[in-house]
């Protein structure tokens, strides 16, 4: 048995140095600690700088052309003209995001409930695998796939460009986010509560519907809103599905639908001041929408009781 020099004995315990005397390498450890704190702070700042620049750009350029008129009128016929707004795009984005949420939220919640209640179920690993893969699929490819399946007449359903096709592509992008965040939230529901329900003679579906889902509701809402915010900000999958429009479109199919991102794309591509100004304001609007949704989501998450 090795005997370190500092084996505690009654004698050494009586002759301890004052607390003010630092132990041998204490000073070095304190210095390293300070240094690492500084390094980590720098990395945090480095991560925040691009975000701050981006926000600053959009706000400083978009705040000027942003107005009530921008929110309530459609674009003038020519990109050269100033004035007008993105009403068509705002309606289209909200419309398609809404329809996409109607498709992806029930499906996503159902999948999450399945993964939570049957974590080792027959299809659980398959669902998890495809959910992970779908998270990584480039969004433009999602648009391409929906184009082939729904829009195109040759080999697809031939629905044509429009709200439904756009919403379908957004739904595919939102689905894995809904599934994964909901699964996490459902897992946080204490097993105690489910046991209590079973102990009272609840069936599996009654436990899920009346105990697990309500207990997880605030967290589920947060996840859903974040997924919706993500969908609302997508542009790439809409190029091949919604196509874009300059007038307000209320039809579900049969007419190309407008989108804020698509309008911005067009606006920035033209060398005319009017279109570029409106595109900045469009970016500002989009950030307002997604930021607003995120803030709501965070606020709800804070109210969560689990």
């Amino acid at each position: 048995m090795s005997t370190p020099t500092s084996t505690p004995t009654a004698a050494t315990h009586e002759n301890r140095p004052s607390l003010l005397v630092t132990s041998p390498n204490g000073r070095r450890r304190a210095r390293i600690s300070q240094l690492m704190t500084g390094v980590l702070l720098l990395t945090v700042l480095a991560a925040l700088v691009p975000l701050a620049i981006l926000l600053w750009q959009v706000i400083s350029n978009g705040w000027g052309p942003f107005s009530w008129e921008f929110l309530t009128t459609v674009e003038p016929l020519s990109y050269r003209d100033t004035g007008g707004g993105y009403l068509a795009g705002i309606v289209g984005t909200l419309y398609m995001t809404g329809v996409a949420a109607l498709i992806s939220v029930p499906l996503g919640l159902a999948a999450a409930v399945y993964l939570n209640e049957r974590p080792k179920g027959r299809y659980a690993s398959v669902v998890r695998f495809f959910t992970d893969v779908m998270t990584g699929v480039p969004s433009v490819f999602v648009g391409l796939a929906v184009y082939a399946l729904l829009v195109s007449g040759s080999g697809g359903l031939g629905l044509g460009f429009g709200t439904l096709a756009g919403a379908a592509s957004l739904a595919i992008i939102m689905l894995p986010i809904v599934v994964r965040s909901s699964e996490e939230m459902l897992r946080l529901v204490p097993a105690d509560l489910k046991q209590a329900a079973f102990g009272l003679g609840a069936r599996q579906w009654q436990t899920t519907l009346k105990v697990t889902l309500p207990a997880a509701a605030p967290g589920l809402t947060t996840g859903v809103i974040l997924a919706v915010a993500r969908g609302a900000g997508e542009t790439a999958p809409l190029i091949l599905t919604a196509l874009g429009a300059r007038e307000v479109v209320l039809r579900l199919t049969g007419a190309p639908q407008a989108d804020i991102g698509l309008l911005m794309l067009d606006g920035f591509r033209q060398p005319f001041e009017g279109g570029i100004q409106r595109a900045w304001a469009g970016g500002f609007t989009l950030i307002l929408i997604t930021l607003g949704l995120s803030i709501i989501a965070r606020a709800l998450a804070r109210r969560s009781q689990i």
């Binding site: 509560l193 209590a196 329900a197 309500p214 207990a215 009781q305 689990i306």
Partner: peptide
Amino acid sequence: GMVFQKPNPFP
């Protein structure tokens, strides 16, 4: 019926 170790009222 059953009563558990930790009080577990529903929220």
